[in-house]
């Protein structure tokens, strides 16, 4: 959890707006540090968290979580965290064996054309907590869905339409029905002008339209710098009475060992 980002977003684990869809995207940079921020944030806020870790192993998230002061293993044991380790589950489908008990959630790998229905079923059961009625179970706050990252689904052959459908269903369940939050990461490559990767561009546009808060991480337009890792554009989309208005702020950031610092453009301690 980065306290500087919390003050920018005007949120704290004790008080945050519910029903938000936060979109995290990056271009020529790496925004995964924000996913770690939101994971530790919502675990501290005592939310029930459903995490789809599609690109890294559980060990990785756990190791980073420990640096940020949360224990994923404990959260998992207590039932606060429902974790899907995409890499582990995918192996049994990619390398078929006779006698294996496989997870249904990654079924789309077998035939990407069928869509992400099984993954959505996993999310829904995780968010509603169907199996938590046993005695002595702790009560958790509003449910939160985190996805790292959505664009890897495109690399695995799922169509853009299917991914947008999936995110829409998730939003309907998590944000509207259960009044929880949702954070999704989308990674794009190339420049905006270049008409290279149509799939992930469509995905980014579609999700930017749906989201209530967008964090766009980019590399510096002036090129590589060791002390400033990039810039993040925070974009609030608020619906107020007569329509929608957006508010934008731009920050530069640097990721440290145990956090990240955000500062206004040109005010890095390296250049002042």
């Amino acid at each position: 959890m980065f306290t500087e980002l919390n003050s920018i977003l005007n949120a704290s684990p004790d008080s945050f707006t519910q029903g938000e869809f936060i979109l995290v995207s990056d271009r020529q940079s790496d925004a995964s540090f924000l996913i770690h921020h939101f994971l530790s944030f919502y675990l501290r806020a005592r939310c029930r968290v459903c995490f789809l870790g599609l690109v890294q192993s559980f060990c990785h998230y756990n190791a980073v979580g420990q640096r940020l002061g949360v224990s994923l293993t404990q959260a998992k044991e207590k039932g606060q965290l429902i974790f899907l380790e995409g890499l582990k589950e995918s192996l049994s489908i990619l390398i078929p064996h006779e006698n294996n008990t496989e997870h249904q959630a990654m079924n789309f790998l077998r035939d990407p054309a069928v869509g992400l229905r099984s993954l959505y079923e996993f999310v829904r059961s995780g968010l509603t907590g169907s199996g938590s009625s046993e005695e002595g179970a702790e009560e958790w706050g509003p449910p939160v869905l985190l996805v790292d990252d959505l664009s890897v689904l495109l690399s695995l052959g799922v169509g853009t339409g299917a991914v947008l459908d999936f995110s829409h269903y998730c939003r309907a369940t998590a944000c509207s029905q259960l009044q929880g939050n949702m954070v999704m990461l989308v990674r794009c490559n190339g420049d905006e002008e270049e008409d290279g990767d149509e799939g992930s561009e469509w995905l980014l546009k579609g999700l930017s339209h749906q989201c209530s808060l967008a964090l766009h991480v980019q590399g510096l337009p002036t090129g590589y710098c060791k002390d400033i890792h990039g810039q993040v554009e925070v974009c609030w989309r608020m619906r107020q009475g007569d329509g929608q208005h957006t508010q934008k702020k731009l920050f530069q950031y640097k990721v440290h060992d145990k956090g990240a610092s955000f500062f206004a453009r040109g005010t890095s301690s390296a250049v002042l």
Binding site: V152, L154, S155, R187, N189, G190, G196, D197, E198, G199
Partner: peptide, 10 residues
């Protein structure tokens, strides 16, 4: 290039 980008990210 976009395909190469997703190969790199994996």
């Amino acid at each position: 290039r976009a395909l190469m980008g997703s190969i790199t990210r994996l």
